[in-house]
Design a protein around this nucleic acid. Structure first.
Length: 431
RNA sequence: UCCGGAAUAGCUCAGCGGUAGAGCGGGUGGCUGUUAACCACUAGGUCGGGGGUUCGAACCCCUCUUCCGGAGCCA
């Protein structure tokens, strides 16, 4: 008898097969027993009839509990009531382990309880769907970059100092070398890579010890940083746009079932795959003030501003050319206006907020040095970074994507904590 | 860190000054097509901790703890 995955079951109509999985739900009605079985690839209703199974086996099967592991043999056939759906006519049920009373019931639960049971919650249908979309987004990003001459160049997680001095870092003792920190971005290291490979990216966990407590923040999240030599501001935004649109198309093509389970509005996603809007920070502020925001030209966008800015837009919006005071030291000065830098933020529509932060980098040694001095950065820790401007400096640009932010938007998940297997937040480290 | 809110059965919640409740989940029984199945019976509680007001507190007040939502910061 052949072992098959549930997703392939319709290829075996009328032929006895063996499924291995877990009991999602169980019901019985006299001599009939319905077990909803899931195996990681999908789920299927199995139907057992007492005379087919024998009285003893039937009684045993009736006492299977939610999430018990089980091997079920049977014959796939069309569902008598549902068009295009298949079920399994059971010939044999072999329990592997009878599960204890399962904590996650069939009615709704609160977030605290679910997060405390995250190790079990991931079995639920919606969590399964979100995490499969995460998998698809991850590979889509890598595929795009691999096909566009980017080389994977992993940056270190243990670092001697901050990449951007403003945010809080997780600190630890590093033998006799003093303090070390968990990386909050691999970007500066990536800039070394482009001088060897031209285009590079990294993809891994980064850490922010900010006491952020919103639906958009995790203390540990996965970030893809890309960096490219000889790419200037305009081309940088083109790459970001192409990449995001490629990811949208891939998710729509490969995750139809997952999006359906999550009740994601796929029309909104389809219409986001069109030319992105662009505006300068100055233009964005003008527009926002018309809409009633109290933002000024020297301020960063607030959460409400990001919503206002995209409320009439089906596509993501680039905000570019920012005041240098509110952006990082490494961003290149705008040749048209020395008070601005060539940075861009990409804001997703539907109120989801920032997806990408990118910029052309300052490639002039003197300008970079003076900017670092102005920010009172410890220059001795950054000699290697400054060296890049002394040995064959070139114009270059890069950007970073928060994987979970992107997955949150694409999947339509209300909170970022569901888009990573084990979320780390300021009040939660278990499980 | 700041501003709101919540904590009652394993879970989700109702009860808001006078004997602690429901649905789900568990157990037992019934039913040959169920779809978060249904029906009957059944077990299950120091009402988050501490203090106070009151004849009487799950309920009112103070305090602590834990969590949730939002802001700022950012991806």
């Amino acid at each position: 008898m052949q072992d098959v995955f549930i997703k392939d079951i319709e290829k075996y109509i009328g032929q006895e097969v063996r499924l291995k999985g877990w009991v999602r739900n169980i019901r019985h009605s006299g001599k009939l027993l319905f077990i909803i079985l899931r195996d990681g690839t999908g789920e299927v209703q199995t139907v057992a009839f007492q005379p087919d199974l024998g009285e003893e086996a039937f009684e045993t099967a009736k006492h299977l509990t939610l999430e018990s592991s089980v091997i079920i043999c049977g014959i796939p056939k069309p569902h008598p009531k549902q068009e295009g759906v298949f079920e399994l006519q059971v010939t044999k049920i072999e329990p592997i382990q009878i599960a204890d009373e399962y904590p996650i019931g069939k009615k709704e639960h609160g977030p605290d309880f679910l997060l405390s049971n995250r190790h079990l919650w991931i079995r639920s249908q919606k969590q399964w769907a979100v995490l499969r979309i995460r998998h698809t987004v991850y590979y889509a990003i890598c595929n795009y970059l691999n096909e566009h001459n980017f080389i994977r160049f992993d940056s270190p997680i243990l670092t001697p100092n901050a990449c951007e001095g403003t945010t809080t870092l997780f600190e630890l003792e590093y033998f006799d070398e003093g303090k070390a920190y968990l990386s909050q971005s691999g970007q500066l290291y990536l800039e070394t890579g482009i001088m060897s490979f031209g285009r590079v990216y990294d993809f891994g966990p980064v850490f922010r010890a900010e006491r952020s407590k919103t639906r958009k923040h995790l203390t540990e999240f996965w970030m893809m940083d890309a960096e490219a030599a000889f790419v200037e501001h305009e081309e940088n935004m083109q790459i970001q746009e192409e990449l995001i649109r490629y990811v949208i198309r891939t998710v729509l093509a490969q995750c139809a079932l997952e999006l359906q389970i999550l009740e994601r509005n796929t029309e909104a996603l389809k219409s986001a795959d069109a030319t992105f809007k662009r505006m300068t920070h100055y233009e964005a502020v003008e527009l926002l003030r018309q809409k009633g925001s109290d933002i000024t030209h020297s301020k960063d966008l607030g959460a409400q501003d990001e919503v206002l800015l995209t409320e009439d837009s089906a596509v993501p919006v680039f905000v570019e050319r920012w005041p240098k005071e509110i952006k990082a030291f490494y961003m290149k000065r705008d040749p048209l206006n020395p008070n601005l830098v060539l940075g861009d933020d990409l804001i997703a529509p539907e109120g989801f907020g920032e997806l990408i932060g990118g910029s052309q980098r300052e490639d002039n040694y003197e300008l970079l040095l003076s900017r670092m001095q102005a920010e009172k950065m410890p220059l001795e820790d950054y000699q290697w970074f400054l060296d890049l401007r002394k040995y064959g400096s070139v114009p270059h640009s890069g950007f970073g994507i928060g994987l979970e932010r992107l997955v949150t938007w694409l999947s339509g998940t209300p909170h970022i904590r569901e888009t990573i297997p084990f979320p780390r937040m300021i009040y939660r480290i278990y499980p």
